[in-house]
Design a protein around this nucleic acid. Structure first.
Length: 553
RNA sequence: GCGCCCGUAGCUCAGCUGGAUAGAGCAACGGACUUCUAAUCCGUAGGUCACAGGUUCGACUCCUGUCGGGCGCGCCA
């Protein structure tokens, strides 16, 4: 519809250009849906743009355009007005909206999807937490956003893979092994202390107990180094499994679990990355270490790739990893990172630029911190202290629907207060239930209609003439745009806002009119048809957020 | 010192990549239950968009600076 309005304006511009000899037909203008009702269904700023080009008054140009449009006799246009500084507002005929419902009904689950992506391959990497402990609540926001962004992009026609990068090769893993082994020795009654930077959490003791129960004899025969190694492997398997479980309970499933050790280190990818950087003359030896001259590629400082003791840094592994993503054929590399990693972004981009990739293909969504608030006070979540709030604890208390919605409802680059009290409330204050309730109500009405032998039908949808009905239909018709815009800007929170508005419209409508009215079967059938369409959009929107649409509440 | 994010109603936040009279939810106050599920709806009140300049037809939005809050600036990951 927007396109049709655009074409009408375009045509009138061409006509005016022909008459006056002025080159107005190349004016770039926008057609948008105005915020206010009084400004029509669509609005264009074309007159203002054209005016600044030609030096004449916006309203004069608007008058010409409008009279041109009035001469054209467009089927969908009811009337056209000039308003404010020179906006041209279009009021379309009601039936042109109502008829679009059929489109929603037929497309059903795929309504709102698009082919903006054209099948382009995209990799979304997120969470990627070190498998050295349970996921804490900060990871949950990353997980929810990453997963929802992936859903948005798939819906918009991209070919998306979700990947968890497992940091199983670094110092952290060694430390985990040492920590577990120290706890194991404690169980044997041997006096031992946790390493200085060791992991203090309760789970380390639990894991040690597991090992004590099943592998005590085996372990006692080994040297300390070997025992540490065994502890590490055991703890790793245990924790990665727990992480998978937690994510699964949050309805986050990954396509790939990409092991840094197996896929990078054991495959000589580090050397590969190093030689690519060498070929770009981006390397330098200094103080016994190998440096990447990032300053030559836009960063503010240089970075060490190989330490003076010969061991690789995390950074060179990450360069190799991202090089590998491109090698695997992905055109867009999207990373969901905590805001504390922002400096790493510049570094990574400059390295990709050095190797010869388009740095614009590497995108990062930075996630600001989550504060967990209960009873007006912040709940601490320090990992090292061992007393952090885990994703699991929150999931057990409030469930995946509320957890996900709350984590998604704010823009990623805004700090988020997660109010546990509010999340736990199953009441009107809780926006998740508010939206889900729409779906439940609709399902319930449809069930009742069936019992009354009333069937939804598009035969009489012209009778949908209530102001609210038209408002809802217009809102439904803007869903594809909302989904597209959310995908484009990698912003799931836009879907949250959209759904809250739609839910509000529906509840208002529900309170105002009876959907089922056995006195007027034609109208009822049309209204049933309408609420099915509302249900479709609610469900599609919630699915993009990874939230369920229950039929009963 | 340098870099990134934020500053909008009492609170938590939107504001579609410059548009028309600034938008929700919650909290507050007043109303609507013989209900197609009241987990709902209606009404009232609430604002110098942190501050100061600049860019232009037009700025909450873009640029510069100041103030305030968060985060980062390792041969850690």
């Amino acid at each position: 519809m927007k396109q049709e309005v655009y074409n009408i304006v375009k045509k009138s511009l061409e006509a005016i250009s022909r008459e006056s000899g002025r080159e107005l037909n190349e004016t770039e203008f926008e057609v948008e849906m105005p915020k206010r009702k009084g400004f029509g269904d669509f609005s264009t700023n074309v007159a203002m743009i054209a005016a600044s080009k030609t030096g004449s008054k916006p309203r004069d140009i608007a008058e010409k355009i409008v009279s041109e449009i009035n001469d054209m006799e467009c089927k969908i246009v009811e009337k056209v007005e000039i308003a404010g500084p020179g906006f041209i507002n279009f009021f379309l005929k009601d039936e042109s909206f109502v008829n679009q419902l059929k489109n929603i009904y037929e497309l059903a689950d795929s309504y709102g999807s698009s082919d903006i992506g054209g099948g382009e391959r995209v990799i979304v990497e997120f969470v990627s937490a070190n498998p050295t402990g349970y996921l804490h609540f900060g990871h949950a926001r990353n997980a929810a956003v990453g997963d929802s962004v992936s859903r948005l992009l798939s819906f918009a026609g991209f070919n998306v893979e979700k990947e968890f990068y497992v940091n199983d090769a670094g110092m952290q893993m060694q430390m985990l092994g040492k920590s577990v082994f120290a706890r194991f020795k404690e169980l044997l009654g041997i006096d031992s202390e946790l390493p200085e930077d060791g992991y203090q959490g309760e789970y380390v003791i639990e894991i040690a107990k597991d090992i004590y129960g099943s592998k005590k004899d085996e372990l006692e025969k080994l040297s300390d180094d070997e025992a540490e190694q065994l502890c590490k492997d055991y703890a790793y398997k245990f924790l990665i499994n727990e992480i998978k479980n937690d994510l699964s309970n949050l309805r986050v499933e990954f396509d790939n679990w990409y092991s840094e050790k197996e896929k990078i280190h054991d495959q000589n990818k580090l050397e590969n990355a190093q030689s690519k950087l060498q070929a770009a003359s981006a390397l330098e030896k200094k103080d016994g270490a190998l440096w990447f001259k990032a300053t030559q590629f836009g960063d503010s400082q240089d970075w060490v790739l190989i330490k003076s003791d010969g061991s690789p840094t995390y950074f060179i592994a990450d360069i190799a990893y991202h090089d590998d993503k491109f090698e695997r054929g992905f055109k867009r590399l999207i990373n969901i990172w905590g805001a504390d990693h922002h400096s790493h972004f510049t570094r990574l981009k400059s390295s990709m630029k050095a190797i010869g990739y388009d740095e614009e293909s590497v995108e990062v969504v930075l996630i600001q911190f989550v504060r967990l608030v209960e009873n007006g006070k912040e709940v601490a979540m320090s990992k090292r202290a061992g007393s952090y709030i885990t994703l699991r604890e929150v999931l057990e208390e409030v469930g995946p629907d509320v957890t996900r919605f709350f984590l998604l409802m704010r823009s990623s680059d805004s700090h988020l207060d997660f109010d546990l009290n509010l999340a736990k409330q199953q009441s009107s204050e809780n926006p998740v239930y508010y939206i889900q309730y729409v779906y439940a109500r609709i399902s319930s009405i449809l069930k009742n209609a069936e019992e009354d032998e009333l069937n939804p039908s598009d035969k009489h949808i012209d009778s949908l003439s209530d102001e609210l009905e038209l408002a809802i239909i217009k809102k439904l018709l803007s869903f594809p745009e909302a989904a597209g815009s959310a995908a484009e800007s990698l912003s799931p929170h836009k879907i949250c806002y959209y759904l809250q508005q739609l839910a509000s419209d529906f509840h208002l409508y529900y309170n105002k009119v009876k959907i089922i009215n056995s006195e007027d079967k034609d109208l009822s059938s049309a209204r049933l048809y309408l609420i099915i369409c509302i249900g479709i959009v609610i469900k599609n929107g919630l699915t993009l957020l990874g939230v369920d649409s229950p039929k009963r509440m």
